[in-house]
């Protein structure tokens, strides 16, 4: 208002002084703001990068722990089961060297053979736990059908599985990761959810493959999943997250619109197919 009055009265010098002062004041203010704000942005980015590095470290640690656990389990299986069996066979064979009676020898050899058969079965079981032969030979659909059959065999929960469009298989190494994720999800449902059914489905669009696990028990939402996967203890969700990242895919935990069941969706890119 003052500036307008000054201008009307022809007193330009006031307008110029105030205008110039105002412009310079604004310019200096803007530059100071930019310097500080830019620094804040950079620090924020650095903090985000550190957080991401920490997160990566946690995932790597989880992956190492998981490997270590697997190794310990294998060592325990071999030491506690295969070791005593083979030691027993050795005993029977030693007995053969001491007792020359053919009937005793025959019995001893028969017993040793029985134990060797058991050992072969045991080693096969260990091997199957590393990579299920059904998955390797017939694919994810058959491996899931096997898993579902085993769950149904226990009788406490009703499980079903339906693959709508799985004519082309996912690449083997990725298929194993997907199977492990589904196995972990189902394992978690069995352990924690108290649900009465589990239903696994597979669908495909032009760009993605979708695998969904539905259940009617207590489940996780996306926020809970993201929170729990970053807590230091517990490996399951970290392994899922780690595998999802390796697969270059996404996972969504949500509740159905009707609020009757929980749903976990794995979204894989279409180029994961063979």
């Amino acid at each position: 208002m003052f500036l307008l009055q000054a201008l009307q009265s022809g007193n330009v010098t006031y307008v110029v002084y105030f205008g110039t002062f105002g412009m310079l004041f604004l310019a200096v203010g803007l530059i100071v703001f930019i310097v500080f704000h830019q620094r804040k942005v950079i620090y924020y980015q650095l903090r985000m990068r550190n957080m991401q590095a920490d997160h990566q470290r946690i995932l790597l640690q989880a992956s190492l722990n998981s490997q270590e656990e697997e190794r310990q389990r294998l060592a325990a299986d071999l030491h506690d089961d295969a070791g005593p069996l083979l030691a027993t066979v050795r005993l029977y064979l030693n007995e053969n060297l001491i007792h020359q009676d053919p009937a005793t020898q025959l019995q001893s050899i028969y017993n040793a053979k029985q134990i060797v058969d058991d050992t072969i079965q045991l080693i096969r079981n260990i091997s199957h736990s590393l990579i299920p032969p059904t998955l390797k030979n017939f694919g994810l659909e058959s491996a899931m059908a096997d898993l579902i059959q085993k769950i149904n065999g226990a009788g406490s929960i009703h499980a079903s599985c339906r693959f709508h469009d799985y004519t082309r298989r996912i690449k083997l190494e990725q298929e194993l990761s997907v199977f492990r994720i589904l196995q972990e999800l189902i394992n978690n449902i069995l352990k924690h959810s108290h649900s009465s059914f589990i239903h696994v489905t597979q669908n495909k669009t032009e760009d993605h493959i979708y695998l969904r696990v539905h259940h009617d028990g207590e489940g996780l939402t996306q926020t809970e999943y993201e929170k729990l996967r970053d807590v230091p203890n517990g490996l399951g969700l970290k392994n899922i997250h780690s595998r999802i990242r390796i697969l270059n895919s996404r996972i969504y935990f949500d509740k159905d619109a009707t609020n009757t069941y929980f749903k976990v969706t794995i979204e894989l890119p279409i180029d994961a197919l063979m």
């Binding site: 110029v16 205008g19 110039t20 310079l24 604004l26 310019a27 200096v28 530059i31």
Partner: peptide, 14 residues
């Protein structure tokens, strides 16, 4: 450039 333009703007205008 910015400070020069801000400072000289009003005198140039009149």
């Amino acid at each position: 450039f910015f400070m020069y333009a801000a400072g000289a703007f009003f005198v140039f205008l009149f």
